[in-house]
Design a binder for these strands. Structure first.
Lengths: 221, 221
DNA sequence: TTGCCTGTGTGATTATTGTCACAGACAAAC
DNA sequence: GTTTGTCTGTGACAATAATCACACAGGCAA
């Protein structure tokens, strides 16, 4: 059961919920529950069954694949207004998770039970359309990612990653390596190269982009 | 408009269509059209808009990402009974294709117009469920692929690819390289290694697996 | 201040993959 | 037969990335 305050924020983050008829909205809000998770929590992991459909109010989730040797690669990030499509996939395919989800910041999640999810999907065009779009976008992202991992060099991918963030970037080299699926040393070396080109300035846990245009050109060949 | 013979084959390949009410079935069959495409046809390509929802009667489609330098990597393969989820994604997200589809053999396709696709999706639980499952499966495949490309060595991926096919395998080294997103020479060299281990026997456009168990062990570390 | 812990820089070395440049082998076409 | 084109083998080399093994710097806490 949600408070009115939570409900308002939910409708603000998820405008498509406003299109649901009043009764459905009420039912949804009655069956949903709110969860708070601290940063760093493993929200879900490979081979776990799936609880329900999460709607993110605040914080975001890194969805990653972990390699046996400890390396990891970020598949995508879930931000408020989106939902973890991987979860939808589990719910719809009745399978288990195939990746790990990690809370990047503290999370505030509204969890929609599986039953309510299926009901909405059957009855509500707006909801269905929303879920389909999520799937569609993720599919596109993943295909783009496969392509990048298979065909692009790490320096290009790093450049692209940097310009996708807003300067100044507060992040460790290790975290960048984890997004790229590479090792910390490599990232450090490549960053040094960028700095020598005058494209970035570096500090402890901080990177300032000095020449975004040059980075961009470099990133897409 | 479909002939009765085509209709029967369609219902056989796509059992979920049988669950549609008679009227919907009739409408679907009335608006759909059949296409025949020779092997090697580029069925769709990046940045093309999308025509309709394809149902495969025979033949299959390789969905690939092409690199600027001519290399290519297979994302997945569409076989009869499935549909190209990428197309669904385009239809639903109203975006363009993000990959290329190539007819591996001659194709016989029933093309469902976009409008009919949307209608069915709204009205028919069976159809909707089918499409969701397609999405779900592809998502899983792609995540698996990303993981393999990022973390596995080529020899392991090649071994896995070989055991996924039925021996004797009729294929060129170049075609294997294209599935893996690598170069022909590398595949040739790795195969030579496998042959020296006694895991495979090689001939022109043919590979016989002699020790599937060893290959399998090698493939998953 | 003195440690400690985390984050970063760096060299040396290796492994893996890609690239180039051919040569030979085989099959189908002429 | 000869020719032609595709498929395969191979050596040499370059490029990229991974791994290992440290040194050092800065901030925080005892």
């Amino acid at each position: 059961m949600l408070t009115n305050e939570t409900k308002d924020r939910l409708l603000q983050q998820y405008p498509m919920l406003r299109e649901l008829p009043g009764a459905d909205q009420a039912e949804l809000l009655a069956t949903a529950s709110v969860m708070h998770l601290p940063a760093g929590t493993v929200v879900f992991d490979e081979n776990q069954p799936c609880q329900g459909f999460p709607l993110l109010l605040s914080g975001n989730i890194r969805v990653v694949k972990a390699a046996p040797n400890g390396r990891e690669l970020q598949l995508y990030r879930v931000i408020p207004g989106e939902s973890c499509i991987l979860t939808s996939s589990c719910l719809l395919g009745h399978t288990r998770y195939h990746a790990r989800g990690i809370a990047e910041q503290a999370l505030e999640i509204v969890l929609l039970p599986a039953a309510a999810f299926h009901t909405l999907l059957g009855k509500q065009e707006a909801f269905r359309s929303y879920v389909f779009h999520l799937f569609s976008d993720r599919l596109t992202d993943l295909m783009q990612l496969v392509s990048a991992v298979a065909f692009q060099k790490l320096d290009q991918r790093l450049a692209a990653l940097l310009i996708s963030k807003s300067s100044p970037i507060h992040i460790t080299h290790q975290a960048l390596a984890d997004e790229l699926g590479s090792a910390r040393e490599i990232v450090s070396r490549l960053l040094k190269g960028f700095a020598e080109q005058g494209w970035v300035k570096m500090g402890r846990e901080q990177i300032d982009i000095s020449d975004a245009a040059a980075l961009k050109i470099f990133a897409d060949l």
